[in-house]
Amino acid sequence: MAWDLSKAAWLYPLRGIYYFASHRFLWPLFKTRLIPIVLLSAFIYTILFLFAYLPQVAFLAIFQGAGAWISGAFLVLGEGAAVVAALFEAFFVDETLVDIFDAVLVSEGQGELVAASRVLYPQGDDVVQRLGKPTQSAVYSPFSLRQILEFIILLPLNFIPVAGTPMFLILTGYRGGPFHHWRYFQLLDLSKQQRKERIRKRQLQYTTFGTVALILQLVPVLSMLFLMSTAVGAALWVVEIENRRPPLASGRRSDREGVYRDTADFMA
């Protein structure tokens, strides 16, 4: 099972792109934020590449030679991603990510999981129209000052020739990957200790997922579009986890004494 490429965690951010493109009910959720975010992203990346790229390449060239052009690009893209992500919070996009995540779960037969924390209407023109207001706190990925600081601290890894950029991507993916399932942990009502246990059992998978998600978010202009499609991929991964859960462990909500179990508990 570990070698089943069809279930590789790192593929889910890519599957999210295809799923979004082929499921029209998600498009309005993107359109409401897409135009202003694309324009904002284009402006930020243009400014950074005009005024920050060449000075950083010149500095990196002291240590890396010709490789500085590539490392400098990743450095500027990382800086741009950090700025855009911070501004993205100002647009209250987390609410949109929650709607995207929940809509995919409902569409893929996991409505019971979502109904535990938000109203679901029995009828609607599409899945999104069936989503009512959350009855509990609904957060796709919580704001984390620590994560932002770690991102900034890790950026200088791009100064290291050859290995620096891959190290930056992997370490950032290691820290950021689990945040894409924060909403899932909320729906399961897991305690802090249970969350840590779930993450520990899938740490490699979360690292690969987070790394691919970060690479997509480093794409200029389209970074925030890929953030939204990654939420789709995260939900598709949840669907796979829930569908593979053995019948005896099929309870949707955990209690605080650690009864909840998922497929990771049964994997060799």
Rank of each mutant, 00 (worst) to 15 (best):
P247H: 11
H180K: 08
V127F: 08
L157N: 02
T135P: 02
L222S: 04
E197W: 09
G164D: 10
M228T: 14
M224V: 14
L236Y: 01
F185Q: 11
E240Q: 06
V212L: 03
V238H: 00
S223Y: 09
R195C: 12
R130G: 01
G233N: 01
V162H: 11
I170W: 10
N158L: 10
L145T: 15
N158R: 05
L214G: 03
Q136V: 12
V139L: 07
F185T: 09
F151D: 09
Y184K: 02
D189I: 14
F143E: 13
G176K: 13
G177M: 04
R245K: 11
Q136S: 12
M167A: 10
Q136A: 14
M228Q: 14
L171K: 13
L222I: 11
Y121L: 07
K133N: 13
Q193S: 10
S229E: 04
Q147E: 15
Q217L: 13
W237N: 08
M224Q: 13
E197M: 08
T211K: 03
L188R: 13
D189G: 13
L157H: 02
D125E: 15
G210L: 01
L225H: 11
A138P: 01
P247V: 12
L222M: 07
A234S: 07
P178K: 11
T207R: 01
Y140S: 01
I241L: 06
G124C: 03
Q123N: 13
D189K: 15
K133C: 06
E242M: 00
G173V: 09
R202H: 14
I153S: 06
L171R: 11
F185W: 14
A234F: 02
A213C: 09
I148N: 14
Q217H: 08
Q203I: 15
A234I: 05
H181F: 12
V239C: 01
L222Y: 09
Q205W: 06
S229D: 02
G173D: 08
L131D: 02
G233D: 01
S137K: 13
P134I: 11
H181T: 06
V238Y: 00
S229P: 00
T165I: 11
L225N: 04
Q129P: 02
L190G: 03
G177R: 01
V219F: 08
T208H: 05
Y184C: 01
I170P: 01
F168L: 15
F179V: 14
R198G: 04
Q136M: 10
L155K: 02
P220S: 03
F226G: 00
D126G: 03
K133M: 11
R198A: 13
A163I: 15
G210V: 10
V139K: 10
L171Y: 09
M228S: 13
V239W: 00
N243V: 07
I199A: 08
I153D: 03
L236E: 00
L169F: 05
